[in-house]
Simulated assay, not measured.
Amino acid sequence: MYGIVNKSIQDLITEKFGEDQWVAIKEKSGVDIDFFLSNEPYDDDVTYNLVVTASEVLGIPAEDILHTFGEWWILRTGKEKYGALLQAGGENLKTFLVNLPSFHNRIMLMYPKLTPPEFKVSDIEENSIHIHYHSKREGLQEFVRGILSGLCKTYEVEVDIELLQARSEGSTHEIFKVNW
């Protein structure tokens, strides 16, 4: 993953739990990188180690950390780094979610070594949509749920996000049903 992801995790932990907790997490994880370069790719293990270690140090389930980080990614990192791109996705939640499959195509112009997930949509209804999440990276479904939750907060829409299928249960990809 790119350094911007790890830097965002650092920012989240530092702001919510304090600099001392970040230092403890970094030391215990064995990550000996002084600072993350946003445009530099890092091994996925760095990110996974930070999340697992944060879970241990903070006493919070990794799934909760991933969910919170997904929201943070949209509400803080996304708005700060990709504000115009997010705004171009649509003027309401439904339009943004329908346009979600093309979002990473634009991001890849900024990060040419990116291995992005693929999103597809189906079952588009007046008040719901199915989001299909395909990725070579496993274990990030709660991060995606957090991203969806952050988008809902951005558009000030109350939603229910239901996981319909998951790779952990033998499926080929995750499907989320977003109801508003």
Rank of each mutant, 00 (worst) to 15 (best):
I4N: 01
I4P: 00
I9C: 03
I9N: 01
Q10R: 15
Q10D: 06
I13D: 08
T14S: 15
F17R: 09
W22R: 05
K26I: 03
E27G: 03
E27F: 06
K28D: 08
V31R: 04
D32P: 00
E40I: 14
D43P: 02
L50K: 01
V51H: 06
G59V: 02
G59K: 02
A62S: 15
T68D: 14
T68N: 12
G70W: 06
R76H: 14
G78V: 06
A88M: 04
G89Y: 08
K94I: 02
L100S: 09
P101H: 05
N105S: 12
R106V: 14
L109I: 10
L109H: 10
M110K: 14
K113Q: 12
T115M: 11
P116L: 02
E118Y: 09
F119T: 02
F119N: 04
S122R: 09
E126Y: 05
N127M: 05
I131H: 07
E138N: 11
R145S: 13
G146Y: 09
G146K: 10
L148A: 08
T154E: 10
Y155K: 06
E156W: 00
D160Q: 04
A166M: 01
E169M: 12
H173M: 00
E174N: 13
I175R: 04
F176C: 03
V178A: 07
